[in-house]
């Protein structure tokens, strides 16, 4: 992939993570009302927002394969639960409250789409950077 292509990919993944971050922060307070048990759904949403924000910054700053891996894991860590808790009434698991919600609000839908897209594109980023490291790294020899 060309340098321009990689930078574009990086920006898109980071933007998707940024959207994920903002929506989780926006919803944290109301989710705390729905899931007050254990560590609290609001705190989990804030943790997700923090992870997404950090992953986006890391990716923007480095563009390295490692950053794509982190971005993909963070995106998946939100994408899988949102689908799981929408379609399965998962009970409380230790400190993690039950967060079953079979409804789709606009914010939830946008967040899920961004998480899925970020995970997919980050996987592409991992593959691309493995084959041709993006930065013009000098050869060790």
């Amino acid at each position: 992939m060309s340098r321009v292509g990689e930078v574009t990919l990086r920006l898109v993944v980071a933007a998707a993570l940024a959207v994920d971050c903002v929506i989780h922060l926006m919803l944290a307070d109301v989710i705390q009302l729905a899931a007050p048990g254990g560590v609290g759904g609001g705190n989990l949403f804030r943790a997700q927002a923090l992870a997404a924000g950090l992953a986006a910054v890391l990716l923007l700053a480095t563009g390295r394969r490692f950053a794509y891996v982190v971005a993909g894991l963070v995106a998946l860590s939100a994408f899988v639960p949102v689908l799981l808790y929408t379609y399965v009434a998962v009970p409380a698991l230790g400190p993690i409250p039950s967060m079953y919600d079979p409804t789709w609000s606009d914010d939830k839908l946008i967040s899920a789409v961004c998480e899925g897209a970020a995970a997919l594109l980050a996987a592409i980023g991992v593959a691309v950077t493995r084959r041709s490291p993006i930065s013009s790294r000098p050869s060790p020899r």
Binding site: G37, G40, G41, L50, P81, V82, P97, S98
Partner: peptide, 12 residues
């Protein structure tokens, strides 16, 4: 940390 994060409703 991220795996602890989830989306949805709540319990408690």
């Amino acid at each position: 940390v991220a795996l602890l994060s989830a989306c949805g409703g709540g319990d408690g």
